[in-house]
Simulated scan of single mutants.
Amino acid sequence: MSVSSDSTAGSTTSSAVVSTLRAAGCVFAEDEARLLLSTARTSHELDAMVGRRVAGHPLEHVLGWAEFRGLRVAVDAGVFVPRRRTEFLVTRAEALAPPGAVVVDLCCGSGALGAALVSALPGAELYAADIDPAAVRCARRNVAAAGGRVYEGDLYEPLPVALRGRVDILLANVPYVPTGEVEFLPAEARVHEARVALDGGADGLDVLRRVAAEAPAWLAPGGSLLFETSERQAPAATAIVAAAGLAPRVTACEELYATVVIATRR
């Protein structure tokens, strides 16, 4: 059913969108309606966007963007949607970054983390990488706007060799959902985001092991690797980075339900 028409008053259209979204189970129907109405350029586009949302597509994919730490970040269909809780990781990284920091964003997805961090760090250099071509295409738009570069490939493999031993802040928002638990994720993530951005292997820590193993060679003296994990996985995650020769500490934000491990090169 169409929720808009050229002859429908704005308030009526808004009410119709809210009702449609609420009937589909959208908890924040009013907020979502406001965003859809402000983004759609025509009534036909609005109908299409509402239809996709009702069908279960993530709101950010429908809008084509997500708000992350005050930035409007482009998010294409199929690309991992940056979570609000991950803003805590960026906040912790900002507190550690030296002037003119060299920042690398591994498993960058949309590039939201790196773009948000360097926007708060004058003179910082940003490099990002992801194995998913769709994510790389999306990240290039966001990272280019931040003055950085994006590379396609597996973890460190595509990065310039000249970065070895120079990285002050290594952001690695690695997938950490155990393979057996992916099927229990909300459909918005399970169906509409790339599995490579979610599945962390049998215990959820496989990608972290690979990142940690090479991190000391890429970090500058005193540089830090920062990654998000679950509270349950934190002890095993800290053991992994400690075994790689880094000094870990765990920090958490109860408000955002975020757990971040900071592992520093001694």
Rank of each mutant, 00 (worst) to 15 (best):
M1E: 15
T8E: 15
G10I: 13
T13Y: 01
S14T: 10
V18Y: 01
T20W: 03
A24R: 01
G25F: 03
V27L: 05
A29Y: 00
D31H: 00
L35T: 00
L37W: 08
R41V: 12
H44S: 14
M49F: 05
M49S: 04
R52D: 09
R53L: 00
V54Q: 03
H57E: 10
P58R: 04
P58F: 04
L59H: 00
H61C: 06
E67Y: 05
R69N: 02
D76A: 14
D76L: 13
D76I: 09
V79D: 02
V79N: 02
F80D: 06
R83D: 02
R84Q: 14
T86F: 04
E87L: 07
T91N: 13
T91K: 09
R92W: 08
A93W: 05
A95L: 12
G100Y: 02
A101M: 09
V102W: 03
L106T: 04
G109Q: 03
S110H: 07
L113D: 02
A116T: 08
G123A: 10
L126V: 07
Y127I: 07
A128K: 00
A129S: 10
I131M: 12
D132H: 15
P133F: 14
R137H: 08
A139Q: 04
R149F: 11
R149G: 07
V161L: 11
L163H: 10
G165C: 11
Y176P: 04
Y176C: 08
V177L: 07
G180F: 08
G180H: 08
V182L: 13
F184P: 13
P186W: 09
A187M: 12
V191A: 12
R195K: 14
R195T: 10
R195M: 14
R195G: 08
R195S: 08
A197L: 02
G201H: 02
A202L: 13
A212V: 06
A212T: 04
A212P: 04
A213G: 11
P221Q: 04
S224L: 09
S224F: 00
S230K: 01
Q233E: 14
Q233H: 14
T238D: 08
I240K: 05
V241G: 06
A242Q: 15
A244N: 02
G245A: 13
T251A: 12
A252I: 11
I262R: 04
R265E: 11
